[in-house]
C-alpha cells in the first residue's frame, strides 16, 4: 500500500467534495437555539431564575418535627 503524501491536498478531500451532513447541521443550529433559550431562562438578570431563589422555593427552612 502506498502512503498518502504529506500534502493538504492529498490528506483531505476537496472542500467541494461533500456537503455538511444534514443531521449534523440540525445538531449544530439546534444546540444554538437551545442555548439561547436556556440562557434566557437561567440568567437572573433575564429570566429571573436564581440558584438561591430556587432553593428557597423548594426547601422549607427546617425538616418537620
Amino acid at each position: 500500500m502506498s502512503e498518502i503524501p504529506d500534502t493538504a491536498e492529498a490528506m483531505e478531500n476537496k472542500e467541494t467534495a461533500h456537503r455538511l451532513p444534514l443531521g449534523w447541521l440540525v445538531l449544530y443550529f439546534g444546540l444554538i437555539a437551545w442555548g439561547a433559550a436556556y440562557l434566557w431562562l437561567y440568567t437572573p438578570a433575564l429570566g429571573g431564575w436564581s440558584q438561591a431563589g430556587a432553593y428557597d422555593q423548594a426547601a422549607p427552612a427546617q425538616p418537620s418535627r
Binding site: S2, E3, I4, M11, E12, R19, W24
Partner: peptide, 18 residues
C-alpha cells in the same frame, strides 16, 4: 487528523467540516 489518513490511505471526508 494526521495519522488516520496516513494509516488508512483514506483522505479526510470533508474539509468544510474540519
Amino acid at each position: 487528523y494526521y495519522f488516520l489518513p496516513k494509516t488508512t490511505g483514506l483522505p479526510i471526508y470533508s474539509h468544510r467540516l474540519s
